[in-house]
Design a binder for these strands. Sequence first.
DNA 1: TTGAAAGCGGTACCAA
DNA 2: TTGGTACCGCTTTCAA
Lengths: 344, 344
Amino acid sequence: MPAEVPPRPAGPPRMADVARLAGVSKMTVSRVLAGRDASAATRQRVQAAIDELGYLPDAGAGALSRGHSEFVVALVPSIMSSNFADTVRGLGDAVTPHGLSLLLGDTHYHLEEEARLVRTLLRHRPRGMMLTGTAHLDSTRHLLRQAGVPVVETWDVPSEPIDQWVGFSNAEAAAAMVRHLHGQGYRRIGFIGGASPLDHRGRQRQSGYQVALTALGLAPRLVEHGASPITMSHGGEAVRLLLQRYPDCDAVLCVSDLSAFGAIMECHRLGVKVPGGLAVAGFGDFEVSRYCEPPITTVAVDPYTLGVKAGELLIRAMQGERDGNPRPAGGELTGYSIISRAST
Amino acid sequence: MPAEVPPRPAGPPRMADVARLAGVSKMTVSRVLAGRDASAATRQRVQAAIDELGYLPDAGAGALSRGHSEFVVALVPSIMSSNFADTVRGLGDAVTPHGLSLLLGDTHYHLEEEARLVRTLLRHRPRGMMLTGTAHLDSTRHLLRQAGVPVVETWDVPSEPIDQWVGFSNAEAAAAMVRHLHGQGYRRIGFIGGASPLDHRGRQRQSGYQVALTALGLAPRLVEHGASPITMSHGGEAVRLLLQRYPDCDAVLCVSDLSAFGAIMECHRLGVKVPGGLAVAGFGDFEVSRYCEPPITTVAVDPYTLGVKAGELLIRAMQGERDGNPRPAGGELTGYSIISRAST
DNA sequence: TTGAAAGCGGTACCAA
DNA sequence: TTGGTACCGCTTTCAA
């Protein structure tokens, strides 16, 4: 068989192919695609050519020419956490209608990995970037500021914001739960958290617990156990340690609903009644807390809306850049609410 | 204040800036970045300039010039499902070490949305694409085949594969669970599934249940309730319906561990003993099934490894393209296992 | 080992 | 309303 001479190096059809088939210039094709001025007849011919060839404009080439991409970055500590997944979903729902696509990065709760991902993903010149949490390496902050890309930090209140933010105070929310338990009559309130210093939100919750407890004149009963992400099994193991070290505990606040659930299940096995023997409260309002037995008292924080709001802030920042307006600084404090259920 | 004349239209530093600062040509910078031939002295000067300017190469421009991008697409029905999130994590862990970034799409269990996402994300000329499930619109298949991008379908066994695949037979796995229940002595086995025809894997599990039941000479007891994604509350509601319609049920297989958990919690409330009054089995081996009381008998399918394998198949296909080898067709059947716990 | 020129696939700008 | 040209930032190719 004789070597065929390929007319073109194969690959998907280009705008030039469409132009040729429609008998117009590339520019006219470009205009039709952008929905700009073109006669009805031309528009139709071009559209026919596009359909026939199955032409899809190259987003990268367009971005290079236009000067900006169509990406928004979402960085989460763990996509496996339904909480963060929900925030990503909210972000997606907010930005995809604007023609933007989501670049996802999972930092695995490592600030170094976060820095690496920021570097890598910044190379794609995203229109905006959502970060989870407010603890970042200096190099990350520096990179982000220098890149000038709109940033939204979420899930916490930054003491030193990179740009915009939307979140709530994990410390205050945990403190509110402590006061709630105190209001219910509990006095020997323990805390089950993770052992990892990297889980900044977990540390904040723990510190809120300690501050509130001290304010009430009570003594802390603390168990730090398990690496992030905190799981149900961590909760089960931690509650054993708690009951061992502090047998007089009448209530415990867990750093996450996952560990609260694990703790309650372990209590079942140990023959400890919940809430009679030990009241158990969680954090995050996971689905499991609503449906388990007993349902778990928790702090609800609405992760989906957090993501939606982050997306809206990014969109607004993008529009501001287009219109030459200064970036709207500051952030938004979102609420949390104590949901009292049968576990306390 | 006199109008300043901007030397450049601002923006991040370009390769030309690095070249100027280092006193070399763009090409030399490009070579240093690619780790190709360059004298040690030059290499050092260039690196110094890169560091000083904080230069990050533009990935889009590079992709345009090189002829291929650095993206892999992950399409899931719902990022909120810890199962699919785990697969995305596996895919990420497999491809990011190769310098690739994840473009995420959430189809919300809609084939039309999937088609839309495939269109949009194909415009970024990804190196590979992971799809969840094997049910797709014809237009989606057509688009993908025409684009010639390596595709891996996951979480099921395609009867008409688009390209490669890695998964297991949801029908067979459900049938195996039915046989397991039968082996435990149960004879009046019900099934709780979703009402949505869009959840193809759910339908497959249901059909596997029916086939196995028929083979055993037993009569089906079916409840279809709730839209995808199936939640814990769906399970609770469905089990009420089941016990109402088929009060003689001695066991039930749920389409997901989530609904199994919801069903068990509802049984607690109804005063139905599990497994004494009703044995409950799930599907998916979610964390909650391991730690709840009683622990749930389920089908384990290892979603993380599914993602890793999908990533490896894509990487291999990419390498094959580079080396001019034909795309390795076919797929990989992954295992599942019945995990017997106290709920049955 | 290094550099100059061309071109990847689009869009902005200006002219017709 | 349409087309030509330059150029976005990088890599490939070829020559020095």
